[in-house]
Design a binder for these strands. Structure first.
Length: 429
RNA sequence: GGAGAGGUCGCAUAGUGGUCUAGUGCGCCCGCCUCGAAAGCGGGUAACGGUGCAAGCCGUUCGUGGGUUCAAAUCCCACCCUCUCCGCCA
């Protein structure tokens, strides 16, 4: 949610920033007109209410004294009608403003290029040399089948196409990666681990703005009106919904593992083979509530923290600065981390790090005080995957595969796999 | 899921239609007193919105949303949450 006061005081800057995302200036002008009308009416309604409030005690006084209060009662009745009439219009204007405002995305950061997907900038090329194979590298779905790690066919039997069953060491690999990432972020990067509900109420999913962003993408329980989390992000936003954080508590740094459910409607057949795009996947999410002046640095740190996972797994990746038209609704700046998948022969997105500035905080009514008694301000909220699992698994299998069909486990992960050094060897499957 | 009790200012409580501008205690802040502190005394102690150069003024908020009334913390309806007991259950 943008600040209406900012739109009011610097409309041209707001228009220019939104133009980068392809939003028209017309919306801003409409909004400003509503705002003018709304405030005028608000002043009117409030002065009528003030008069009515003054009348109350006077009526009571007369009645107690046994005097005739009928004149005051008549005036009060008149005011009641006048207020009711204007309040209806006021409610309409409030709703209109709310609706319009809720439709406007966050203002992109100055550093963010204009344009869509094609305008993304590679801000860091491959982090390490891409592996040269002296044999034809297999795709992860073939490795998964031959090593008995995961089973899309049985997943489809259980829940439909796009659901995966992990088996044996494959299931353990998944669990190992989750634990490895959680440990890395809590022990090395100073995050506090949070165990979250995997479903959210309508209220929560609305406050975070995800009902707009994901809407029909989410699986849901209509009877209970609950939504399966499409990512841990909305849950972590709602953790402090409606709170005023006391001085000294910022920055808050949270890490959480959740499964993520996405219907991926309309994506069928496109880049979906194997683990590239599935309806349920595991993800470790890192999240910060930051002081506004530090959020730029925080985004860089979080991007680096996501990369640290890939470095430890000895996987090459690159960083993309997304263009304004391609970043999430609530984000001001987004950096994607893409890992190289030699079997699929593509860069696969495994993390998306976003600075949402005060946009989510305003919407979810999360504030903080710098000093005791200081005026509440909105913190900046940032999220990053740290990281999403299936594509990491894909890249890991493909990158570290050997000519004999086994896969070498990166050293950092071995302690989590009971010391196993190679998948597919010595009964490890 | 059933029955009952409850949700009021940071915390604890009072408040059953107009005198509530929500009282009191605790906590916290400021001042007085003191060499300093404690105690004591005095004052202060929210958020959001509107308006104003500002001081301020006005409005809204007593779990949430509706309703009754000239007037609602107070009456009515629905919902949410907490606690106790019962049922069910990994």
């Amino acid at each position: 949610m943008l600040d209406i006061r900012r739109i009011r005081t610097e409309p041209d800057a707001v228009k220019a920033a939104l133009a980068k995302r392809g939003e028209s200036a017309e919306k801003i002008d409409q909004l400003l007109q509503i705002d003018v009308d709304r405030r005028k009416l608000t002043t009117e309604v409030e002065s009528l209410k003030a008069e009515q409030n003054r009348l109350g005690p006077e009526i009571a006084k007369k009645k107690r004294a046994g005097e005739d209060a009928s004149e005051l009662l008549a005036r009060s009745t008149e005011l009641k009608a006048a207020i009711a009439q204007r309040e209806e219009r006021q409610r309409e204007l409030n709703e209109a403003q709310e609706t319009q405002l809720a439709k406007l995305p966050n203002l992109p950061d100055d550093a963010v290029p204009a344009g869509g997907e094609e305008a993304a900038q590679v801000i860091r090329p491959e982090s390490r040399p891409l592996r040269e194979f002296d044999f034809e590298p297999k795709a992860h779905w073939d490795l998964g089948a031959s090593l008995g790690l995961f089973d899309p066919e049985r997943g489809a039997r259980l829940a439909g196409s796009g659901f995966i069953v992990y088996t044996g060491i494959g299931a353990r690999l998944e669990r190992a990666l989750i634990q490895f990432m959680l440990d890395l972020h809590t022990e090395k990067h100073g995050y506090t681990e949070i165990g979250l509900p995997f479903v959210l109420s309508r209220e929560s999913i609305t406050a975070s703005g995800h009902i707009v962003k994901f809407g029909p993408e989410m699986y849901r329980d209509d009877e209970a009106d609950l939504f399966f989390v499409p990512t841990a992000e909305p849950a972590l936003v709602n953790l402090h919904r409606g709170e005023i954080l006391e001085p000294g508590v910022l920055p808050l740094k949270y890490v959480a593992y959740t499964p993520c459910w996405r219907r991926e409607a309309g994506a069928a057949g496109k880049d979906t083979r194997g683990l590239q795009r599935v309806h349920q996947f595991d993800k470790v999410e890192i999240f910060r509530y930051a002081l506004p002046e530090t959020s730029g640095d925080a985004l860089e740190e979080m991007t680096a923290e996501a990369c640290a996972v890939l470095d430890a797994l000895e996987l090459p990746y690159r960083l993309l600065l997304l263009a304004a038209g391609d970043i999430a609704f609530a984000a001001a700046k987004t950096v994607d981390v893409e890992v190289w998948s030699p079997g699929v022969n593509k860069w696969l997105e495994v993390s998306s790090a976003s600075n949402c500035t005060d946009f989510q905080a305003r919407r979810a009514d999360i504030r903080f005080r710098r000093e005791p008694g200081a005026k509440p301000e909105f913190p900046h909220l940032l999220n990053a995957s740290g990281t999403a699992l299936p594509r990491v698994v894909a890249a890991l299998l493909e990158t570290h595969q050997n000519a004999d069909g086994t896969v070498t486990v990166p050293a950092a992960l071995r302690p989590y796999l009971g010391g196993v050094e190679r998948l597919g060897e010595g009964g490890a499957g």
